[in-house]
Design a protein around this nucleic acid. Sequence first.
DNA 1: GGACGCTTGTCAAGGGTCTGTTCAAAAGCT
DNA 2: AGCTTTTGAACAGACCCTTGACAAGCGTCC
Lengths: 312, 312
Amino acid sequence: MGTEPGDGLLRIGELSRRVGVSDHVLRAWERRYGLLKPVRSAGGFRLYSEADESRVRRMQDHLARGLSAAEAARAALGADRAGAASTAGGSASVAVERHEGLADRAGALALALDELDEPAAQAVLDRLLSDFTVETVLRDVVMPYLQELGERWARGSVTVAQEHFASNLLRGRLASLARGWGHGHGPRAVLACPPGERHDLGLMVFGIALNRNGWRVGYLGADTPLEELINTAVDTSADLVVLAATTPERFAGLTEDLSRLASIVPLALAGAGAVHTMALPVGTRLLTADPVTEAEQLPPPTRSSHDARARQ
Amino acid sequence: MGTEPGDGLLRIGELSRRVGVSDHVLRAWERRYGLLKPVRSAGGFRLYSEADESRVRRMQDHLARGLSAAEAARAALGADRAGAASTAGGSASVAVERHEGLADRAGALALALDELDEPAAQAVLDRLLSDFTVETVLRDVVMPYLQELGERWARGSVTVAQEHFASNLLRGRLASLARGWGHGHGPRAVLACPPGERHDLGLMVFGIALNRNGWRVGYLGADTPLEELINTAVDTSADLVVLAATTPERFAGLTEDLSRLASIVPLALAGAGAVHTMALPVGTRLLTADPVTEAEQLPPPTRSSHDARARQ
DNA sequence: GGACGCTTGTCAAGGGTCTGTTCAAAAGCT
DNA sequence: AGCTTTTGAACAGACCCTTGACAAGCGTCC
């Protein structure tokens, strides 16, 4: 009966009773960790809100998990921030078709993939790779196809089955082109997509082109926590880290981690999500052109004498 | 989602309790091998992240596998392949030379993958595939490794980077083995995982084994809506549809769709999620053994299918 | 075979840190 | 009045730090 739900504000005794933490401790947590932010009554009494109460409960949870008081408080406070950022990201979508002979092949590939015809698609790719360089096929067929697939997907004119089938098949072909890309003597690049990003085919293309340019590639692929990426970059003493995403939102909220990463190893952002309008750590490079071109234009692997061995 | 892994930092006592390693040893591992990279509190206490915790678990795994502490730490750290430039066989391939058993090769593969050593892993796989049949390698090396990886993942003793790296590399190898699996004259099987299921490597193994047994494989892969699967099965006049999932929950709630599917085309459920305790449409087949064995035991590709209704 | 050295888990001493708790005096609330 | 609250200071004990050393196990070298 002694409750005062008027404003939902509690004095320290009541809060103490509710959460089972002595008033002394509550004051200590406030003083030492800033866990609680009570307003004061006219006479100076602390008045706690429901937010304070739940903050205490979170603190208790963390303590139960074994965290120290300081860490538990930090964690309990950290859960308070809520972040939301959403921006519509329209961007250029101009399908370019250069080599004329390539256009028909590209059409044939798209058709075979749409029809879930694996043998036909493989055959088209085989012929492409025997008639053109890997770079050309990747830049002028595979990448345009991937982009077109993405657009068709966005407007619902492709089925899940078609998308899955095409992705799986292309992934397989790319994987075979990627064979041994960690081998060699060139500088090391570590490639990944940020958390939430599931499309890594373009990144694979980039890795293949990089490798054919003399780099060693370490590939972590889609949906990789930055913490992991940082560790891997350090452990493998990477000379470059490339993060790719299809939309700028994937990079949002990572500013701090990106800065940390960029301070450790040269960093480049790629993919349609790499735009100039975002806050970038100094020294970060934006790769906005197609993956093959960007890979060719990266600072050449000037390392020692025996690297000039670009594989054919 | 808690974006920061550094949210719950542990002091040494709690970490020691969690992983079952004395605080003395933890400090020794840090001092001697740099295994741990704790930040420090204002007063100088070590504060460990979850990454540190899982690094310790990896260390324990490697110790259990018989590595010395120094090597286990090196492996747990993700390898640095310092002298790899000249000595083509890094530490990963050392263990292979002596006894040529499958078990040793499997261990070497696991080690190479743990160390993110792509060339070493590819080399181990190359030798395996030249010394044994595809079926043997898949059944006795790849599948056990995938299972072990899953278990280690569940208990946090493998990093995201390691999991991604291993998955990507194995997916690439499997894709090359899958080349042309849609080609031929055998009966057609359509393979997919239900919505939400992202692990499709085992299903790829199954597809490869099926194909080598005379089947044509249409592959839709992970996270496929049943509606799409049904359409595809009809469009390609499939003789069999295989749905694979790692947990029974993935099949839950699909009962109606599964019945519809089973009434159209012979249906089989596979993976660790295919258990007898669930409600099954009549005629549905459960594939509970390993993928290779199940593929070999499927009714042979006698094109005159529709009479031999598979029974349990 | 024995001296030597390396690796690795343990331990101890001396001292600092963290955190719940207590004390005391002054003041608010009903 | 009688209860609660506030502030500042001070503790005690658990917890942790660094340095240094030690011993068992194992391989190497003479």
